[in-house]
């Protein structure tokens, strides 16, 4: 029963933070702040989704040690977690750099060292 409660909490955290990312995608004014919401919140939410699966599969394997597909699933989900954790911030970094090169500047920016540097060149 404790396991079920933990699973519900993890799943709720995942859904809430993914939803927060989507809300931020629509509420923030420009592409950089949207990237903030989209990257941080969806990465965090998806990590908690994988945590849910890992706890679920781990508990099932603990109760039925003969069923090896549960352990297999936990390990594959862990690999998916690493893939998400490595690729998502790097993709956001590439998109932000592309946005700045295209000429989208941050709205209401108080200072912009990168634009200063590009002007100098």
């Amino acid at each position: 029963m404790i396991v079920l409660t933990i699973l519900y909490i993890l799943l709720a955290v995942s859904i809430i933070f993914n939803g927060l990312g989507i809300i931020g995608l629509h509420r923030f004014p420009d592409v950089y702040t949207r990237l903030h919401a989209a990257t941080k919140c969806t990465t965090f939410g998806t990590i908690f989704m994988t945590f849910t699966i890992m706890v679920y599969g781990g508990a099932m394997y603990y109760w039925y040690p003969a069923q090896e597909q549960y352990l297999n699933m936990v390990i594959h989900t862990f690999v998916a977690l690493i893939a998400i954790l490595v690729t998502n911030p790097t993709g956001a970094h590439a998109l932000a750099r592309a946005a700045h090169r295209v000429g989208v500047h941050p709205e209401k920016a108080v200072l912009d060292h990168l634009a200063d540097k590009e002007e100098k060149e």
Partner: peptide, 26 residues
């Protein structure tokens, strides 16, 4: 409004698809 905005939305959708696939798999 701009092309990078659309790319950001597409990136978000990709992450969501990964989360849904993991959930469906379990």
């Amino acid at each position: 409004p701009t092309a990078p905005d659309r790319a950001v939305a597409l990136d978000t959708i990709n992450t969501m698809v990964v989360a849904s696939m993991v959930g469906l798999g379990a």
